[in-house]
């Protein structure tokens, strides 16, 4: 019963903090002329950016409530690790929102953001994470030398993966809502109740932000928002010992990054590349004919026929739901051994 009350409180706080702060942020960003053109909107409306401060506020306040309400709970060290790493990722994104930096800046800075998580794990005896990679059906493999590297890589990968799918109205927040709730369900199936509870603010903060980010967007999350969501997802995967399940729930976004990297063949800031899509006369989105434009998930989705921005968003959400179901099946398979 106590866990249910905790879950309810943390979910409500995360949702309503983001829900309440975002309209205020929209006004403030508008006043300061911190806005970017929506390239897919007819007339190219200016949309305030970044919405990251509202997202990080929802996450940090809800996690702090959980921490302060039960100060002696052993899960609190995990909450501290999550809050520090997620906040550092937010700062990285905020710097990138204000100043366009090189393609390597974000991965390297996000790798640095993961260091507190590594250090807390090393010095805390209760086990913030476990250097075992657990696979369904076959069991686990202990690779301590590799696992530290996995943590250092996980945060840049999940952060940049969500950032690179943030290409149209509502996609990053909607996708993260589906992926994070899938991960929460998977954690419950794997009987990791503490981390499932800690993960709830991610889903509810994303859902509240989606209200303003969905088509037609009133605000964009920016790098600070996308990196915050992605980094927190990565931390949950690590402290929840659900790295494989988390990767599966994220597959459509991973495919997007994979397609992009395999066509561009280098790490580059997404604002520096050619647009992989263009518009038809009736303002639907279609794949560009330019051979040197990168291949992305959206480009493949509109290669067959042009789609509206809203249709593309829902197509990606269906893919996210499919991956989420595969992640949940994988969580069930974690209990199966041959």
């Amino acid at each position: 019963m106590q866990e249910l009350i905790e879950a309810l409180i943390v979910s409500v706080v995360a949702f309503f903090v983001v829900y309440a702060i975002t309209p205020f942020l929209v006004r403030e960003l508008g006043k300061r002329k911190l806005a970017v053109p929506d390239v897919n909107r007819i007339g190219g409306a200016m949309i305030p950016r970044p919405g990251g401060p509202a997202i990080i506020a929802g996450i940090l306040i809800s996690e702090a409530v959980l921490f302060l309400a039960f100060p002696s709970d052993p899960r609190n060290i995990k909450i501290i690790a999550l809050m520090i790493t997620t906040f550092l990722a937010f700062i990285v994104g905020l710097i990138d929102d204000r100043k366009v930096l090189g393609g390597w800046f974000k991965p390297l800075a996000l790798a640095v953001s993961a260091i507190p998580l590594v250090l807390i794990g090393i010095y805390d005896s209760t086990g913030v994470y476990d250097p075992n990679l657990i696979f369904p059906i076959f069991g686990s493999v202990k690779i301590p030398a590799l696992y530290i590297g996995i943590i250092i890589l996980m945060i840049p990968i999940t952060g940049n993966t969500i950032n690179s799918i943030d290409v149209m109205n509502g996609i990053a927040s909607g996708f993260m809502t589906i992926a994070s709730f899938s991960l929460t369900i998977a954690l419950l199936i794997m009987k990791n109740y503490d981390v499932a509870l800690i993960s709830l603010p991610l889903g509810f903060a994303s859902l509240a932000f989606y209200k303003y980010h969905k088509f037609p967007s009133r605000i964009f999350p920016g790098d600070s928002g996308a990196l915050t969501l992605g980094a927190m997802y990565g931390v949950i995967a690590i402290i929840g010992r659900a790295e494989v399940v988390a990767a599966i729930a994220l597959l459509p976004a991973i495919i997007n990054s994979f397609l992009f990297l395999s066509s561009v063949k280098k790490i580059v800031e997404h604002r520096q590349i050619k647009n992989p899509t263009t518009h038809t006369e009736d303002h639907k989105i279609i794949a560009t004919k330019e051979k040197d434009a990168p291949i992305t998930l959206v480009r493949l989705l509109v290669a067959g026929k042009p789609l509206t921005e809203k249709e593309i968003g829902f197509t990606i959400f269906r893919l996210a739901i499919f991956s989420g179901i595969l992640a949940i099946i994988t969580a069930f398979l974690m209990e199966v051994r041959i």
Partner: peptide, 23 residues
């Protein structure tokens, strides 16, 4: 796209199995 995601999933499961058994 669903086929590609399904194949990726199976490759993750199979790769994990090989990793556990071999490594």
């Amino acid at each position: 796209m669903y086929v590609f995601i399904g194949i990726m999933w199976l490759l993750i499961l199979a790769g994990g199995g090989i990793l556990v058994v071999a490594v």
